[in-house]
Design a binder for these strands. Structure first.
Lengths: 211, 211
DNA sequence: AGGCTTCCGTGACAAATGTTACAGGAACCC
DNA sequence: GGGTTCCTGTAACATTTGTCACGGAAGCCT
């Protein structure tokens, strides 16, 4: 699919000025990315900044071996601050971006990201707004890990999931949760059982209902 | 003290162009802040962006009650990303900035921060470089909390301290360490004893020597 | 049906961290 | 010197989290 200004007007109603949308239609690259694909992996270089139109992308931080802690999710009209600094600084990625639900995005080449910053004030605002959101996301993550016990974090994690998928039943295995909270499967199973006994959730195979 | 272009040229040798330094000399406000003072506290509004010239500032994240986890330190020629987003977004601060060692800084009014972004490319670079550094700092913090046990974190913490103060003996109480690592004093005492037995450190009253 | 894999439950134990309680030393003030 | 406060050490115990071991249920393939 090629980008049209009209299409962009619909999706970015109110946030970007017309001239910018026209530029975006020309310079941006529309992509549809299936569930399970990686937008970026640690060590790769970043050449464009993605703006998510629809879908859900999970941003994770890997440690030396194997484990990957969940940092935050990107959803509609979000963009990635890591990619911004990465781009402009020509650095390798320090994080993993995994598509959770099929995602539509617009990739903006880095020259344009830079160029538009001075030309369009709405773009500059968007960029800084993005930074602010990601920063707050990271702070929230730190709050969780530093101040809360695993059972609370688990419940918060499940709640956030239901928000991002707009439903009360989520499909996930204990093993996956364990990875994102940087712990082991058995521990998650145990805590989930506790939560079920406390009537916060209901367990099913491959699925968890939040009450 | 009033700012002179000459003084700025010395301290920012090579990073900023001359015209910018002249503007900075005019718009920037030089401040000397004593140890123990707060640059900002949660809930306050941010009106200017500080650039640290000398000294050391500790950035912390408070939780609902009392505890304050350490996020990172600002040192020479650092600036604060939180203040950037805070300024430009007119938000209240989410963090605490405490002066650890007497600090000299230049406060740049937020209008200028914005204005210079398009006028001076070195300023824009500086801003984004700052973002990148803070982001990496936060990622490092998350790494520590998510993947490492307390004894490792403690040792890392002590090592970082010695770096920032350029010496091998640091003055601090167990209680203070406990707060920054979001745990209790007894736990820190215990682990410090362990580290001493393992000959990593030497304990003294109010002081710890790192070997 | 039989064999295989993946996911889940669970007990038993080990290790790490948090909590409570108390005692002694150092510093300071009077 | 006596009282007070702050800092440190330490024992005992509770709770939380991590690890190992195993068995069973569901689903898939042939």
């Amino acid at each position: 699919m090629t980008l049209t200004t009209t299409y962009l007007q619909e999706t970015f109603a109110g946030t970007f000025e017309l001239a910018l949308l026209t530029d975006m239609a020309q310079a941006g690259l529309y992509k549809r990315v299936p569930t399970g694909a990686y937008l970026i992996r640690p060590g790769e270089y970043i050449r464009s900044v993605p703006i998510i139109i629809r879908g859900s992308v999970k941003i994770m931080r890997p440690d030396e071996l194997g484990r990957e802690a969940l940092l935050y999710y990107l959803g509609g009209l979000d963009s990635c601050a890591m990619s911004l600094t990465g781009c402009l600084g020509q650095k390798k990625s320090e994080i993993t971006a995994l598509v959770e639900e099929e995602t539509e995005l617009i990739a903006i080449p880095m020259e344009k990201v830079d160029e538009w910053m001075c030309r369009y004030s709405t773009w500059k605002q968007f960029i800084f707004h993005t930074y602010q959101k990601r920063f707050n996301d990271l702070l929230g993550t730190i709050d969780q890990v530093a101040f809360h016990k695993l059972d609370e974090r688990l419940l918060a994690y499940l709640r956030k999931k239901t928000q991002s998928c707009q439903c009360t039943v989520i499909s996930i295995t204990h093993q996956e949760i364990a990875q994102e909270l940087a712990t082991s499967r058995e521990v998650i199973s145990r805590l989930l059982k506790q939560l079920e006994k406390a009537a916060h959730i209901k367990l099913m195979r491959h699925k968890i209902a939040i009450l």
